[in-house]
Write a protein that binds this DNA or RNA. Structure first.
Lengths: 221, 221
DNA sequence: GGCATCAGAAGTGTCGACACTTTAAACCCA
DNA sequence: TGGGTTTAAAGTGTCGACACTTCTGATGCC
């Protein structure tokens, strides 16, 4: 029923250049095109996006509030560095929000939702890399948060997602692609979550989600 | 030990006019000076704050991301209206974050923290109005979130606080100040929370906080 | 009077400009 | 050559300007 892929964001966007720059720059940061700690000068970005400084400036403000960009005391702007200490904060906050989301998603859970999640988990078992599994994992978690029906939960969650993905990209840079082993722990947790949701057990769904997300604090280096 | 009143915000602010306008405008919205749904035109605000449109525009972007201001499809800006449906979302999100915060606060809880909270609860029993009790209540919850030691939790929580306070102001406008009865439910819940925190029971603290915040969904009109 | 139309007012989106601050490089002297 | 100093380059904060869009209310027609 719900189709979270349709809306790219929980927020009703103005369709101006600032929004375009915001989305494009976010994508470039999360994909690792701008490495963490690198400078983000307004004139340079303005040239890069073929616009003036005003839209760039607005985009930077939005990105700072999403936690992807940091304003230094000197006034300069940099891509925010997300370290292990930050990962703990991110995952604790994710656990809090997603646990509540899983509980709420239970109320309007349909067989279509079960199908979507089941298909996603099936794909996870066939994933051939960390990157692919991560993408499927985030899709699944995003789906559950969307199914909560609570837009604010989604709006609070999205920045945590970008930050987490930005962190993952840095990890993937250092980790070789060869030593990938299927993440049986992750798939198992997702199966338990789906079981709880499809059989209408909100407390269990919340608990499984909480443990599953917090477990990943130790997982990611 | 922790002194949450010292820092007014979890975010390292740039000290420019945009930040000043942001903070002042937020205060005016939350205090009810700008009624919900009223127009926020950039030239008018620029004159009001004795500045140009640029800082005003930046402040509006930040406030939109805090959920206090909404950009209409036409491009115009308004003070966001927070209705009963929004209150449910706000309280569910607060419950998620504060429950986690209570759990985390347990790890580094000190007797000084116990003293602070106990003193706050003591003042609550002497409160003479909804407004005064609400202020003490939010101070207490803010304190717990700060004690979690998770800055992201605090950054996600603060906008929910502003939205909740903006909602309360509207309620107070309609409700007479005379029919105030001490909120024994609230005080009781806070006592239970303090008991759990001061005796080192994270699960219980998290559960008490969760139930306490969700209970308020029905309380506020 | 009621309703559509249309001009003027008001507002947003974007730009370039300029003062002030921070950074980087060139320079000088030992 | 090396370290401190000066100077130019680059960046931020703020402003006013202007084109385009949206609103408002005055006008005219029925």
């Amino acid at each position: 029923m719900a189709e979270p892929q349709a809306k790219s964001s929980a927020r009703a966007q103005r369709n101006n250049r600032a929004t375009t720059v915001h989305l494009r720059l976010r994508k470039e940061i999360v994909s690792g095109h701008f490495p963490q700690g690198s400078a983000l000068a307004e004139p340079t970005l303005a040239e890069h996006f073929h616009t003036s400084r005003a839209p760039v400036r607005e985009a930077l403000i939005a990105l700072e509030r999403e936690g992807l960009v940091s304003f230094e005391k000197t006034g300069r702007t940099k891509v925010r560095t997300i370290a292990a200490k930050d990962l703990r904060e991110i995952m604790e906050a994710r656990a809090a929000l997603e646990s509540m989301a899983a509980r709420l998603a239970n109320w309007n859970w349909t067989t279509a939702d079960t199908d979507f999640v089941a298909k996603n988990i099936e794909q996870q078992t066939k994933a051939g890399s960390f990157a692919e599994l991560s993408r499927l994992d985030m899709d699944l978690h995003h789906y559950v948060v969307t199914c909560s029906g609570n837009l604010r939960l989604l709006q609070l969650w999205e920045p945590l997602r970008w930050q987490y993905e930005a962190y993952l990209v840095e990890i993937f840079k250092r980790r070789s692609a060869d030593d990938y082993r299927p993440e049986t722990e992750t798939v198992l947790a997702h199966r338990k979550l789906l079981a709880a949701l499809s059989t209408g057990k909100p407390d269990e769904a919340a608990q499984v989600m909480m443990d599953h997300v917090l477990f990943n604090i130790s997982w990611a280096d």
